[in-house]
C-alpha cells in the first residue's frame, strides 16, 4: 500500500473533522474492504480515519419496537446478540452468514452499508426491514439510502452512527453465495412489516433493490406458493463468470421463496 496519515479518533465529531480536513480522506470502519483495496494499491488516500476506537458507535439496544445497532458493531456481535436473535432472527442469521469468522469479527454494519457493495448482505437487511440510517447529520430512510453501485446518500464527511431496524412481524433471508468469494450472487430478504411486505434483493443487480411484484403477491398471501410464476426481469441484472443475468433472475425467485419459508 501507499503511505498515508493514520488517525484514530475517539469521537464521531473528531472523526468528521479529521476527514473533512484531509486532502483525500478515507473513513475506515472494520477495514474489510478498504484494507485489501489499499494493499492492492487500488486506492491512495492521503489520510485514513479509523473509526474503531469510537465507543459511541458500538452496541446493540432495543428501543421500543426497534433494534438499534451501532454502526461500529461487528457482524459477529449482531449474529450473537440475544436481543437481535429475539427481535429479528433473520437479521442475526444474515450477519452470521457474512464472510468468515475473521470478517465477522472485524467488519461492521456501518462500514458495510456505507460501502454499499452490490453483493453485500447488509443492504438487503436495511432495505428489506425498512430500517432508518442515522448519521452524524441526519436520519435517512432505507429507501433513500442506497443510490447505486458503491453509492449512497451519504455526503462527504457524513458518518453512519447507527441503524434502527423496526421489528417486523416476520422476516427471512436466503442467500445464494458466489462459490469463490462467498459474497451474495443473490440474497433476498423478505419481511412482513407494519408498513407492508418488503422484498429486498442484493447481489443480483448493481445495487440492492425492492422486488415490487413479489411484495404485492406476498401482501396477498405470505407464502412461497404466492411467488409461483413471479420473477424479476433479467435485463438489468449482473452478468459475470459465475452467474448470467438469466440465472440470477431465476435465483431471485428461488431465494425469495426460501426466504419466505424461513421467515419467523
Amino acid at each position: 500500500m501507499y503511505e498515508f496519515e493514520y488517525h484514530r479518533p475517539s469521537s464521531v465529531a473528531e472523526a468528521a473533522e479529521l476527514v473533512s480536513k484531509a486532502d483525500d480522506g478515507a473513513l475506515m470502519a472494520g477495514g474489510q474492504t478498504l484494507i485489501p483495496t489499499l494493499k492492492q494499491r487500488l486506492a491512495s488516500p492521503s489520510d485514513v480515519v479509523d473509526l474503531g476506537a469510537i465507543a459511541e458507535l458500538k452496541g446493540i439496544r432495543v428501543e421500543g419496537d426497534a433494534v438499534v445497532v451501532g454502526a461500529g458493531t461487528p457482524h459477529a456481535a449482531v449474529a450473537g446478540s440475544a436481543e437481535v436473535q429475539g427481535a429479528i432472527p433473520a437479521l442475526a442469521a444474515l450477519a452470521e452468514a457474512i464472510g468468515d469468522p475473521q470478517v465477522r469479527n472485524k467488519g461492521t454494519l456501518g462500514g458495510s452499508i456505507a460501502n454499499n457493495d452490490p453483493a453485500a448482505d447488509y443492504p438487503a437487511a436495511v432495505l428489506g426491514l425498512g430500517a432508518t440510517v442515522t448519521t452524524n447529520q441526519r436520519e435517512i430512510a432505507a429507501d433513500d439510502f442506497f443510490t447505486g453501485m458503491f453509492e449512497t446518500a451519504l455526503t462527504d464527511g457524513e458518518i453512519v452512527t447507527a441503524v434502527r431496524f423496526p421489528k417486523p412481524q416476520r422476516a427471512g433471508y436466503a442467500k445464494f453465495p458466489n462459490p469463490a468469494s462467498r459474497y451474495a450472487i443473490v440474497g433476498v430478504l423478505v419481511a412482513e412489516t407494519s408498513g407492508g411486505v418488503r422484498v429486498a434483493v442484493t447481489g443480483a443487480g448493481s445495487c440492492v433493490f425492492r422486488a415490487s411484484e413479489m411484495e404485492q403477491a406476498l401482501a396477498g398471501s405470505f407464502s412461497a406458493e404466492a411467488l409461483d410464476g413471479i420473477s424479476v426481469p433479467a435485463d438489468d441484472l449482473n452478468n459475470d463468470l459465475h452467474a448470467s443475468a438469466a440465472y440470477r433472475a431465476h435465483l431471485v425467485s428461488v431465494m425469495a421463496k426460501r426466504a419466505v419459508a424461513a421467515a419467523q
Binding site: 458466489n178 462459490p179 469463490a180 468469494s181 463468470l241
Partner: peptide, 11 residues
C-alpha cells in the same frame, strides 16, 4: 486473466 484471485477462482 479473469480468475486472478480467490474472489473468482474457486478453491
Amino acid at each position: 486473466l479473469l480468475t486472478g484471485s480467490y474472489m473468482d477462482y474457486t478453491m
